[in-house]
Design a protein around this nucleic acid. Structure first.
Lengths: 130, 130, 130, 130
DNA sequence: GTGGTCTAGACCACC
DNA sequence: GTGGTCTAGACCACG
C-alpha cells in the first residue's frame, strides 16, 4: 500500500505533524478505506526518508484518536470512521482555516467586497484545475 | 502610547511570535503611524506581563525586517513603510491564509458550492459585528 | 566538526557579533562546506566558554540571513550559498573596509603616494606570512 | 565659528563617537587652528540637533585627551597639538584602518594582486575627485 | 531614563 | 541527544 504524503523540508511545521495531518485527512475523507493495512513503520519511514521514531509517533497519535488500530505481530490498520466523526472533522478543519483567513484580512482592514473578490478568484483557480 | 496586543496563553504559538505578528500587522496596516515612538521595552513588558527579553526580541526582529528603528538611549520608533511594502504584505498574508483554507477543503472533498456557502456564512457573521 | 573562532575578550565588539562575523566569513569563503552539520549549541558554547544563548543567537541570526538551516531535534546545517552571494559579500566587505581606510587618510591630509607606500608596506608584511 | 560635522542617523555608531572622531580629525589635521574658540555647548548642540549632554561629553573626552582646554565663563579652546602628536595620531588611525581592511580581505581568500587592484581602483576614484 | 549584552538555568518539543 | 522558548537578574553604554 502506497500512501501519498508530501513532506516540505523547509516548513517550520514539525515532520510528525505534517505526516499526521495528511494521513488523517486521507483517512477521514475516505481516500484510504477502513480496514486497510498500512505499511510497517520501517517501510513507511524508509519511504519518507525519516526516522522510524517519527512514524511510530504518527501511528500512536492516530491510534489514540481512534483512527488506527494496531495488532501485535500483524500491523496497523485503518479503523472504522463513523460518518458523524467524518463530518465533524471536515467541518472543524475547514471552518477553522476559513475563520483564520477572514480574521487576518479584517485585521488588515480588508473590506468585505475586496475579500470576497479575492476568495472567488482563488476558488476559480483551484477548482478549475481539478 | 498604548498598543493593543492580545496574548493567548494557551496557544502553542510562542509569546514573542504572537506579539510580533500583531505589532507587525498594526504597523503595516497603518494603525500605528510612521515615526511613532513605541513604549520602552520595560514599559511594554510590564504591560504585557512578560519578560523584557521577550519584548526586546520582538523589537529586534522587527528592526531586522526594517519595520522599526531603535536608537540606543532614546527609544524605538516605527520606520517608514512604503505603500508597496504594505500592499505586498497585506496581499501575501491574506492570500496565503485563503489558499490554505481552500486547499484543506479540497483535500476533504468539499465541493465548490458547499465551500462558498460556508465562506459566506462566516463572512456575514464576522463583518456584521463591525 | 571543529570551528576555529578567535574571541577577543577585551574588544568592545559584542561576543555574539565576533562569533557571527567569523562564522559568516568561514561559510561564505567556502571554508565550511555547504551541508555541513555544525556543532550543537551546547557543544559550541562549551568550546567557546560562553553561554548557550549566545551561540543560539549566532545560529539564529545567520539562519535569518539564509546562511544556516536548523531542524529541531536534528541540528544546524550550513545552507547553500550561491556563488553570486559569495562574491557580493566578499566584495562588499572588503570594499567597505578599504574605502573607510582611504577616506580616513584623506581627511587627515595624507597624500596619494604616502598612502600607497603605507598600504604596500602592510601588504608585504601580511602576505609574507602566508 | 562653524564646524563641519556630518551626522549619520542610521549608523550604528553612537552619536557622541561620530562627533568626537570628526572633531578630533579636524583638530589634529590642523583644519581648526590652535587657540580657536569653539562654539558653546548649547550652540553646537542646537546646530547638530542633538542633546547638550552629548556635546558636553565630546568636549570633556577631548579635553581629557589634551586636545581642548576649557576656561570657566569663557568657553572651550583648541589646545596646542605638537607635531609629534599629530603624526602619531595620523599614522595610528590610518594604519589601523588599512590593517583591518587587509586582514578582512585575507580571511576571505583575496589574493595579493586582486586586493592591490581593488585598492588602486578606489584610490583613483577618491583622489581624482579632490 | 533609554536600549544592548550576557549569564545561568529551566522546561518543552522534536528526532 | 537535538533545538526552541522564556525567565530573572545583572551590568554596560547612550542621551
Amino acid at each position: 500500500m502506497w500512501i501519498p504524503i508530501q513532506i516540505n523540508e523547509n516548513s517550520a511545521e514539525p515532520l510528525y505533524h505534517q505526516i499526521e495531518s495528511q494521513l488523517k485527512s486521507l483517512i477521514v475523507s475516505g481516500q484510504i478505506e477502513e480496514g486497510t493495512l498500512l505499511p510497517s513503520i520501517r517501510e513507511f519511514a524508509s519511504g519518507l526518508k525519516c526516522s522510524v521514531i517519527t512514524v511510530r509517533r504518527v501511528y500512536q497519535d492516530l491510534e489514540n484518536e481512534g483512527l488506527l488500530r494496531t495488532k501485535q505481530g500483524t500491523g496497523t490498520f485503518v479503523a472504522k470512521v463513523s460518518s458523524q466523526e467524518r463530518d465533524e472533522y471536515r467541518e472543524a478543519v475547514v471552518l477553522k482555516a476559513l475563520e483564520a483567513a477572514i480574521d487576518a484580512a479584517k485585521s488588515l482592514n480588508y473590506d468585505e467586497e475586496e475579500l470576497i473578490r479575492l476568495f472567488m478568484q482563488i476558488m476559480e483557480q483551484r477548482y478549475k484545475a481539478t
